[in-house]
Nucleic acid binder design. Structure first.
Length: 473
RNA sequence: GGCGACGUAGCCAAGUGGUAAGGCCGAGCUCUGCAAAAGCUUUAUUCGCCGGUUCGAUUCCGGCCGUCGCCUCCA
């Protein structure tokens, strides 16, 4: 078994260089990770949730490699805009207005829902969850710093960041500023450049916001990009190792984060930018809150799926590839997931053999994960291992225990099989009892008829030598 | 218009310059009154198309076709 050792090479695909790089932390033995969290004005959908699985994998792998990991996930609980860049309504405020609840209630509610979701997906909580509204002074301070460095200008509706003053603006995204949005109106009133963005927005004069704060520039609220940087500075420092998020954040949000952070500190902001690709529907359409075609984890649960089976599905594809979601794919993932666990349940702890082979699996599993988190490859190896007749149960279980600590599929938890979780209605049990009697009397016709009835109710009867069981179909 | 990604069996999906992991589904067999479950076996001469480089390409290069994402709040 691998001992904790930070000499194992971990390679990660860094968006900055668009290539795989060997991971080297800023401080030996320690890693600081920031994960862009959700805007809490609605439930997270399963596409959102996918992008929190790979940082979880990364964190656990780093910990197994012996690193001390400090990880932050934030909640954007204020200040998001619904439409045109730097225009439109605040999403949290809008949801509040629509439901009659306060903005604070809304954000609290959905933040808690998010925590429940990731818990169901075996995603470990970060060292801290941070809330944007709890870092208002730090955000104001950051704007002041940028102002003192003459990186900002004021318009009628806020304090803006002047991207033309940051020489390498857009480098992360390889943005071609002149090509941005050609032929489309993109600038808000008073903005000097297309890519400039709001640091601080003034509260509208004709309207009372629920969330607003005093600032040197007047009453208002922070722009979206500001919060992540302010929270990173406060919780992790001026330069961090890894920043994760979805690919959609590359051109705007993360480009802006880099611009404001590096202009403020003069230091490199983030060493490794990791971006997860989208989950798309069968038609390869993205799933989005704005698109109104989103599925929540709860929907999956309601349809009879296990949250862990969804995690299994996400691990079946690489985090940098599109994951084509369909219920067919989820069903096959769930079937495979429980089948794998049944195989593991049947392993014999007392049987020991093939130590050399096991060591080989160990190395290949670690290599797969250390190669930019190749979970699909690791899963394939897990299957190979479990079915390998040359390796003993003892060796298999040892490896499974170790790697499930990273994959977090609860492979050794045998309490969540559908037949153990789903209750069989008394009516169905009675039908099964009657069927068993007919069967004992060799009345096959009636026996089969009753089985069809049971099947129509979503259950199936399994006959054994002198007993039977009823399980969900 | 700019930037970028992808196209591997019915489905999901790894992968490598030397002739295609894994899973689901399907098929066959064993078992069973019949089933289910389980076990065993099996399932791409081929990696969108056309060229080029090479002893050899799915893997490298070029072109084409197709699909998708971002550039506006979104993971």
């Amino acid at each position: 078994m691998n001992q904790a050792n930070t000499t194992q090479t971990l390679t990660l695909f860094n968006t900055l260089s668009r290539s795989k790089e060997s991971f080297v932390p800023i401080t030996p033995g320690e890693v600081r990770i920031y994960t862009c969290g959700p805007t809490v004005y609605n439930y997270a959908h399963i596409g959102n949730l996918r992008s929190y699985v790979f940082p979880d994998l990364l964190k656990k792998l780093l910990q197994r490699l012996g690193y001390e990991v400090r990880h932050i996930i934030n909640f954007t609980d204020v200040g998001h805009l619904t439409s045109d860049q730097d225009a439109g309504d605040d999403k949290v405020e809008k949801a509040a207005a629509e439901t009659g609840r306060s903005a604070w209630e809304i954000s609290k509610f959905y933040a808690e829902a998010f925590k429940r979701d990731i818990e169901l997906l075996n995603i470990a909580f970060p060292t801290r969850f941070t809330y944007a509204t709890e870092y208002i002074p730090q955000q104001i301070d950051l704007v002041s710093q940028l102002e003192s460095k003459e990186m900002t200008y004021n318009t009628a509706d806020g304090v803006y960041y002047d991207t033309s003053r940051f020489e390498t603006y857009g480098k992360l995204a390889k943005l071609d500023l002149d090509g941005l949005n050609e032929g489309q109106r993109v600038s808000a009133e008073g903005k000097r450049h297309k890519s400039d963005f709001a640091l601080w927005k003034f509260s509208p004069a004709d309207q009372q916001r629920q969330m607003e704060w005093e600032s040197p520039w007047g009453k208002g609220f922070p722009g979206w990009h500001l919060e992540c940087t302010a929270m990173i500075f406060a919780e992790l420092g001026q330069s961090i190792d890894i920043h994760t998020g979805g690919t959609d954040h590359i051109p705007v949000h993360h480009s802006n984060e880099i611009a404001q952070a590096e202009a403020a500190t003069g230091e490199k902001y983030v060493n490794y930018w990791l971006h997860g690709e989208f989950l798309v529907l069968d038609s390869e359409r993205r799933m989005g809150k704005s698109e109104g075609n989103f599925l929540t984890l709860q929907t999956l649960l309601d349809e009879g799926f296990s949250a862990r089976a969804y995690r299994y599905l996400t691990l079946m594809s690489h985090y940098r590839s599109f994951l084509t979601f369909s219920f067919e794919a989820l069903k096959s993932a769930q079937t495979a997931y429980f089948k794998l666990k049944r195989l593991i349940q049947g392993l014999n702890q007392g049987e020991s053999q093939g130590a050399d082979l096991a060591a080989d699996y160990d190395r290949r599993l670690l290599d797969a994960l250390c190669d930019d988190l190749n979970a699909p490859k690791a899963l394939g190896l897990i299957w190979e291992l479990v079915q390998d007749k040359a390796v003993g149960g003892k060796e298999k279980l040892e490896l499974l225990r170790h790697y499930d600590g990273i994959l977090s599929l609860s492979l050794m938890d045998f309490t969540d099989f559908p037949e153990l979780v789903i209750e069989v209605p008394a009516e169905v049990l009675e039908l099964a009892r009657q069927r068993w009697e007919h069967r004992l009397n060799r009345n096959w016709a009636e026996s089969d008829r009753l089985r069809d009835e049971i099947s129509a109710r979503g259950f199936v009867v399994r006959d054994a030598k002198d007993n039977y069981e009823v399980v969900p179909e």
